[in-house]
Write a protein that binds this DNA or RNA. Structure first.
Ligand code: SF4
Ligand code: SF4
Lengths: 153, 153
DNA sequence: GGTTATTGAGACTCCTTTGTCTTAAAATAA
DNA sequence: TTATTTTAAGACAAAGGAGTCTCAATAACC
């Protein structure tokens, strides 16, 4: 898989957060229920995002997590880097150790192109962009429901 | 990672085979030594390629494996499909189950573009193409050596 | 202060991928 | 026929990713 499961869950939760009013703390339990993700697992993932400064958290009643920046300033890349690290964009198609451009393998040129396409996509797509699209067309973030299910509290 | 380790090993071994004269059986032991891959592990991987008809094998002295077709007719895609399956090209960025274009997630359009770039690359690159490039520029297939190490028997 | 709601941290289990090992089957050669 | 070289098949172990559970820490509310 391109992205790990943790990463995908992190992205979905981030989209959820970006779809809410900024500044509002959302309990992880709410997200895990709506997004159909194990609560404890999602908690661990979001802790990583908090540690990276992408989210901030607040304990106790009315607590939860929220984005530290408006979703329009958060490219998908930030979340991918925080959870999966940079392997996808630095590591290589043939996985040869210690490889740079100095001593390339035959696949390098073609792979570099493809990899750049992936990088571009992740860097130039923001949470808000996807949220707007998702709201407009009622696209889905979960197995069954459309984007709107996130809002019938 | 984009490709599994098994898949990468399968690709490297296939490049090795494509670099030899067609029709020649190469013992797996020779490849595992040159490519620095565990013999038993590589054997299992190549068995998959044999089962898929990409390779054919011959037992006993002077036995080994070889490509069933000239390397110029084998796109990387064939090997990737045989080992990793079609997930990479059919499965989706957000990994929602049972997803097609009917009920897409917000990432679908962007991801579909990127995925097509990967598909194009794998479909339009053949083993022979990479071998020619590798021979011409002495590119590497292993940690240390250049392409030429494959030939000092 | 005590109870409740929430995140934080870590141990633990489960499953898949990766890798090793052993034995069988086939082909050759002496 | 017997020994040797090779692939085939499958059991097994090790490592990492995915997921569960428990307990502590913090904040709000009564
Ligand atoms: S040459 Fe490029 S694609 Fe090939 S192993 Fe090195 S960095 Fe990766
Ligand atoms: S909409 Fe497209 S990218 Fe999103 S989960 Fe479905 S198939 Fe995958």
């Amino acid at each position: 898989m391109l992205l790990s499961k943790s990463c995908v869950y992190g992205l979905r939760a981030s989209l959820f957060l970006a779809s809410r009013e900024q500044g509002e703390f959302i309990p992880i339990r709410t997200m895990s229920d709506k997004l159909e993700i194990s609560f404890h697992f999602l908690t661990k993932i979001l802790q990583q995002l908090t540690a990276e400064g992408i989210l901030e958290s607040f304990k106790g009643p009315n607590g939860g997590v929220r984005l530290t920046k408006p979703g329009s300033e958060v490219p998908l890349m930030d979340i991918v880097l925080a959870i999966d690290g940079s392997q996808l964009l630095t590591e290589c198609a043939l996985g040869l150790p210690g490889c740079g451009i100095k001593n390339p393998c035959p696949l390098h040129d073609k792979w570099a192109e493809t990899r750049d396409a992936i990088r571009e996509m992740l860097e130039h797509t923001t949470l808000t962009e996807l949220v707007n699209k998702g709201k407009a067309e009622n696209l889905r973030l979960t197995t069954e429901g459309g984007f709107d299910i996130l809002f019938d509290d």
